[in-house]
Design a protein around this nucleic acid. Structure first.
Lengths: 114, 114
DNA sequence: ATATATACCTAAGAAAATTATGTATTGTAA
DNA sequence: TTACAATACATAATTTTCTTAGGTATATAT
């Protein structure tokens, strides 16, 4: 697990990036996918995730659809076309931010970068 | 300028990395160095910087020395030996965090990484 | 039976930043 | 010469974002 302060500010970017690839996910599924993809190094907390999903929905970036699976509810989130543009911006910005931080922290630049 | 939420959580790492290279800097100098190295893309605010410097000093990670330059005060910060270990940990952790985020966001891995 | 996993949610509090000030000196442009 | 920008420190109120802790309920494994 990374110290939580590092992960701050990346939650929206992570959510929107996953939903760009998958088109349809529910909250719990997002937590599990992130956990699996990162080998447990990033674990989203529900207290952070759900309010953020609600905010993204209120902003028209995500839409929802509630589905009954067995006796349990699942709230699926889908990214809107305008949301996809936001997702792309966020991912690009984070990518550039990493390149800048590499310079600042005196780390190796990525291949193809000067 | 990057959206401020991205930069959150990286301030200590930036400060400690710079002081590992330079051994002695004052607050205003840090803001200028970061601005120059990042082409203005990261600009530290004083309201964030000074309280963080004070906290790092209180934790024994930095020591200070006040110098009179002309009629103006400069408070120089120097990293302690134990502080250097903390700096190294922070930079390494951030580097690993970037690699994890690259996987999560489906970005190109760095050269040398699988 | 009981614990763990699935699945949603909110609210109080903490942490870390922004924004807005305040003080004071020095250099520069009008 | 005066006013603005830059240098140099600092704090306080507010906002943002997250953690921690709690709540509800079903399904599954021990």
């Amino acid at each position: 697990m990374y110290s939580s302060e590092l992960i701050k500010g990346t939650l929206k970017t992570i959510i929107l990036s996953l939903l760009t690839d998958e088109e349809k996910m529910y909250g719990y599924e997002i937590t599990q996918k992130v956990k699996n993809l990162t080998g447990g190094k990033i674990q989203l907390t529900e207290g952070a995730l759900y309010p953020t999903l609600h905010a993204l929905e209120a902003q028209g970036i995500l839409t929802t659809e509630v589905v009954n699976v067995g006796n349990r509810l699942r709230k699926y989130y889908t990214i809107t076309p305008s949301g996809k543009a936001v997702a792309q911006e966020k991912v690009t910005e984070f990518s550039e931010f990493m390149a800048t931080m590499r310079i600042l922290l005196d780390l190796q630049p990525r291949a193809g970068e000067a």
